[in-house]
Design a protein around this nucleic acid. Structure first.
Lengths: 333, 333
DNA sequence: TTGTAGGCGTTATCAA
DNA sequence: TTGATAACGCCTACAA
């Protein structure tokens, strides 16, 4: 690949002149400029951003560490981050951590060595102190988890969301709500569980009942099966699943068992993934504005990079309760 | 951030010695090695891959140019590419082109300047000759589109898939199949249209009927509405939509119109996105193995990078007809 | 308006 | 075994 020297030689000028026309700064006569442009064209010259980066210390690259891009909750976030990044001339390195702490660590180290200027961390599960040790002084923004000691954070109030979801079930007339939680090692799972607990305490006339699962559809399916086997007055008439994927699993279990969701069993999910609008019945859920959160996270990151500040920003986004058929006791029209 | 020089000074050795312990090559006495390791630790030294890249010419970075990561067909591909990449110590720069040729071009240029070692191009819509001009000699693999003049390609036979889908409808007893196509500017849309045409010719006793749409759910919804307004003997009893998103739109239109999909109207989609298994009714579709294609594409790319060859590999993956409820004339049970 | 030279953080070659 | 030193491709004073 042609270098700036090659161009200089071809154009019969010095490298600094070439540099000047590339960066469009300093004085260059129209004559020489034309020659240079011409030479670049002939040689198919493309400046090396890595050499530039060495000099300038800027790589215009950000990292995105996300659990799993093929999980429907995350693509919107990723898209938001990317849109904001590219508008500011930054690129994104995609890192799927699979919720594994070692992978997260490994990626962050890699990103540092690649001299990424910052990283958006989505749904991190690492211990914060460990994380900070690894991440060093690289700017970062956390999405879907509040960081306590450093970095900016963007998230929604999981506890309040879960509370709202559960409360909604009682308000729709369901009497006995059981919760299918995510793995309680996950902070979000814990928060949603807490929200459920509080709503049960306030509105339920029964003990809370929790089945721990794994945030996956199959996990929701199995959990529902277990729950719905129960007979008699203990039989729940509503389920709040800690995410939509598990809620969809619940819907499927109901279909197999001949239980009519909505009428016989209220179901609420969490996240607001697109396909919840197409299930049968359509899924009531707590919608989280993933795209906006991703976009905002990236914006905060870029601000921090351009203008490092001492303050730490925390933004709590509003969720939205999307009421759909899975919590309608009457058959819809 | 500490440099190799700082480490050398701190450890009381020369930079070359430090370099030797970093890369674990050449001779270093245990004594000095320990000093160096210690110094690196104290200073929190992280080698700069960008400086290394300048010297070695290797960046261990690949580009992934994909239309839209938030479109459910693509995350699996992306995940496949990323998994293969990271196993080989490569990172991925994520680029959402939105199917826009200018964005694609812009990203490719950027990737070249960043000295990515190669790029996986998913669903490119650029004219091949233009593409090659921009992409220069950077290795690339095309997914979901066959390239004729350069690069490797990985795709499924869209024409055969569409043929199979349409044929399936006739075999299930539907008589009049209409096609909702993607934008005919898209190669895949054209190929699927062709497959439909051929199946109609072979098995249908009617003229082909095509409604062009946009690969989006809303587009499918509107197209279905248009189609189902028709009265009398011309009223189609089956729809083959060129992708699942549009097929889901069809299901929704049917729900609104009180038409029972499956029984009254056969519906087949294309892609095999996850949510098709949860719709009502569940969606018959042509499944494309996105993860495997992505993974294989990346593998081919890496092979090409390590060992550039003159040959050009084309791999056609098998699709799978997933027969579900939307093409069952009897109510299930 | 143009060119020369030093430096960005590493690796690699060569002497010592 | 170790240490200078010249690249790598580019930018930026500084000088002319």
């Amino acid at each position: 690949m042609a270098t700036i020297k090659d161009v200089a030689r071809e154009a019969g000028v010095s490298v600094s002149t070439v540099s000047r026309v590339i960066n469009d700064n300093g004085y260059v006569s129209d004559d020489k400029r034309k020659n240079v442009l011409n030479a670049m064209d002939i040689l198919g010259f493309r400046p090396s951003n890595i050499a530039r980066g060495l000099v300038s210390g800027k790589t215009y690259t950000l990292g995105l560490v996300i659990p799993d891009i093929s999980n429907p909750f995350f693509p919107n976030i990723a898209r938001g981050v990317e849109d904001e990044a590219i508008e500011n001339n930054y690129n994104l390195i995609l890192c799927n951590s699979d919720w594994k702490i070692e992978r997260e660590d490994m990626y962050i180290s890699l990103l540092i060595e690649k001299r990424c200027e910052g990283v958006v961390l989505v749904g991190s599960r690492s211990l914060e102190s460990d994380l900070l040790k690894i991440i060093g002084k690289m700017p970062f923004v956390s999405v879907d988890r509040e960081m306590v000691q450093a970095g900016h954070s963007v998230w929604v109030d999981n506890e309040l969301g879960a509370y709202t979801a559960t409360k909604h079930l009682y308000e729709m007339g369901y009497r006995r709500v059981v919760h299918i939680s995510g793995p309680t090692s996950a902070r979000t799972a814990k928060a949603r569980l807490a929200g459920y607990m509080q709503a049960v305490e306030e509105f339920g006339h029964h003990e809370p009942q929790i089945v721990e699962s794994d945030f996956r559809r199959s996990g929701g399916y199995e959990a529902a099966w277990k729950i719905l086997e129960q007979e008699g007055s203990h039989r729940p008439d509503a389920i709040f699943a800690a995410n939509d994927l598990m809620a969809i699993g619940v819907l499927q279990a109901c279909e197999k068992l001949g239980i009519k969701c909505g009428t016989d069993l209220g179901v609420v999910g969490y996240d607001g993934i697109g396909s919840g609008a197409y299930t049968s019945p359509t899924l009531t859920t707590i919608f989280q504005p993933g795209y906006e959160m991703g976009r905002r996270a990236c914006q905060l990151l870029l601000e921090e990079i351009v203008n490092p500040s001492k303050r730490r920003i925390k933004e709590v986004f509003n969720f939205e309760l999307l009421v759909r058929s899975s919590t309608q006791r009457m058959t819809e029209e």
